[in-house]
């Protein structure tokens, strides 16, 4: 029996178990429902507002961008919190203490965080199809959705894992994870077109994968004509592929090193110190 492969199989099983436990927990259900209602409420209120020069209503134009943002947010903040917490509470250390446990643990995170997107997307997508018209311009768009999602996830999840590995404590994920992601989401053309921002912000936004994830999703859902709203007036499909691909490669190179460094530093004393800090904090 090949021990590393066996560990990866166990990791997939663990990710699946964690996913089932997550969708059965009222806390996680509450989170999905809350974000779902927030998005649908916004779209519903503006269902009759037309976006200038497209002949499309706000829900059609905004939905793909919002889906892109939910994916980026989910796979950055999700693993950032999970890793920060699980290196403090001893989950990571438990896996360090069993043979090939870390390979299994990181596999399970990959599986869990990817699966976590399914309910997140469904809770927005399904009602949107029932409530709004012109959500998906052509069925061929689903193919684009699939590759943009897959590549977008590979491009953004490493950012979350690196943040989770580097933050000194779970309470710092807000500052070092949430804040930068909010800023990036804010400038990434999800809420208004990047062209309306200052030039340097427009350039900065296009360095990060969030912008391209949103653009790719818009290219999947919207009709050809809507490309007129974008930078250069086209969907820039090859550029999307290129930038997301580059981030995915960078992630694949950097993340294992960062995770290894984090695991090396993980000790019982560190877990104990986190426990004491948490007790202090609650007081």
């Amino acid at each position: 029996m090949n021990a590393p492969l066996h560990a990866i199989r166990l990791g997939i099983g663990r990710g699946w178990t964690e996913f089932l436990q997550s969708i059965r927990s009222t806390q996680d259900q509450g989170y999905y429902v809350f974000t779902g209602l927030l998005v649908l409420g916004y779209l519903f209120l503006r269902r009759n507002t037309e976006v200038e020069g497209t002949g499309l209503m706000v829900p059609s134009v905004a939905l793909p961008s919002i889906l892109g943002a939910l994916v980026a947010f989910g796979v950055v903040i999700g693993p950032a919190y999970a890793l920060a917490m699980e290196k403090e509470d001893g989950t990571l250390l438990r896996h360090k203490a069993v043979p090939h446990g870390l390979a299994g643990y990181f596999t399970s995170q990959l599986v869990l965080q990817s699966l976590g997107l399914v309910p997140q997307l469904l809770i927005v997508l399904v009602p949107s199809f029932l409530l709004f018209d012109d959500v998906m311009a052509s069925p061929a768009g689903w193919f684009t959705v699939a590759w943009v999602l897959a590549l977008g996830m590979l491009a953004t999840m490493p950012i979350g894992m690196v943040i989770g590995s580097l933050v000194p404590s779970t309470q710092k994920v807000g500052t070092w994870g949430m804040l930068p992601v909010m800023v990036l989401a804010g400038i990434s053309g999800i809420f208004y077109p990047v062209q309306r921002l200052w030039d340097w912000v427009e350039v900065l936004a296009q360095v990060f994968p969030m912008y391209w994830l949103g653009l790719g999703m818009r290219s999947a859902f919207l009709p050809e004509g809507a490309a007129a709203l974008e930078v250069g007036g086209t969907w820039r499909t090859w550029e999307t592929l290129g930038v997301l691909g580059a981030w995915a490669v960078l992630g694949a190179l950097v993340t294992p090193r960062v995770l290894r460094r984090m695991s090396r530093r993980s000790t019982g004393s560190q877990v104990e110190a986190a426990r004491e800090a948490a007790v202090q904090w609650v007081r």
Binding site: L10, P99, V271
Partner: peptide, 26 residues
Amino acid sequence: LQSWRDHPRWTARRLLTQLGGYYTPY
């Protein structure tokens, strides 16, 4: 290990089965 709040949603049986699995090749 002296854990304090890891695996709160797991059961003892499930966690032992999962972690024990890593030793099967040995």
